[in-house]
């Protein structure tokens, strides 16, 4: 089943075309890597898919809803972890979870239950009363991801979730992504770490507003005769 269907998406800002006739789809439960150079138009696409920007033209259906017609319904069915750390630094871990749970309309009792389960899974129970600003970046990222999936959305959008994180924490983070995918949450992720592209079911490479490659990492490497996605990326985007 396709959970994201994008047809001829065009997004213009004045005379600048950020997304130029994008067409692709993402299957339910898939980990989809959305790669591209800085300024290629990735964040714009992500915002359209999340119902935050109305497309100039084309059709975008996310979780069964047209983003142009029903952006609010789209937002209820997705989770979003932004590039900039989005939790509130001056609240504790549990307070942050409470805020997000309430925004997504979960009851107090349900939030409490999910909070306990989440903190145990993340091994964060010890720090539940600590202010978020006192946590290491790795912990913050794990927490931000879990908060983005607290309401059990059908899709989660991750915008450079591992930027600046060390090799060990980065990989632990990807195990959280695998876990989400196993639980049938579709993962739409951008990254500048090209080894992480290899962990995706499929990847697309975007350049100057257009998708210039889209397939499984394995097939892309074979088709272009390269050893790694990094090699392919540098070759195609340069």
């Amino acid at each position: 089943m396709e959970i994201i269907i994008v047809k001829d998406l065009v997004m213009r800002f004045g005379s600048f075309t950020a997304n130029d006739r994008l067409t692709f789809s993402v299957a339910k439960g898939e980990i989809f890597g959305f790669l591209g150079a800085n300024g290629a138009g990735k964040t714009t696409t992500m915002k359209v898919l999340c119902g935050l920007l109305k497309p100039t033209s084309g059709s975008v259906v996310v979780a069964g809803y047209d983003v142009a017609l029903h952006p609010e319904k789209v937002k209820r069915n997705i989770g979003y972890m932004s590039q900039k750390f989005s939790l509130n630094d001056d609240l504790t871990v549990t307070e942050n979870i409470l805020v997000y749970g309430t925004i997504y309309g979960l009851g107090r009792a349900e939030i409490g239950k999910r909070t306990d389960a989440m903190l145990e899974r993340l091994e964060l129970t010890q720090v539940r009363k600590r202010l978020v600003k006192t946590l290491s970046l790795g912990w913050k990222q794990k927490l931000a991801f879990s908060v983005a999936t607290l309401h059990r959305p059908s899709i989660v959008f991750l915008d450079e979730p591992t930027s600046g994180v060390d090799p060990v924490t980065r990989r632990r983070f990807w195990e959280l992504i695998y876990e989400a995918a196993e639980n049938d949450i579709t993962v739409f992720v951008t990254t500048h770490y090209m080894d992480e592209a290899e962990y995706c079911d499929r990847v697309s490479i975007m350049n100057r507003g257009q998708i210039i490659a889209l397939d499984t990492p394995q097939r892309l490497k074979q088709a272009h005769g390269v050893e790694s996605i990094n090699e392919l990326f540098v070759r195609m985007v340069r």
């Binding site: 591209g36 150079a37 800085n38 290629a40 590039q83 450079e160 930027s163 600046g164 500048h192 090209m194 990094n230 990326f233 540098v234 985007v237 340069r238």
Partner: peptide
């Protein structure tokens, strides 16, 4: 101090 964090693979090179 981490000059290339958040920078794409081509710009990094």
């Amino acid at each position: 101090d981490e000059p290339t964090t958040g920078v794409d693979a081509v710009s990094r090179k």
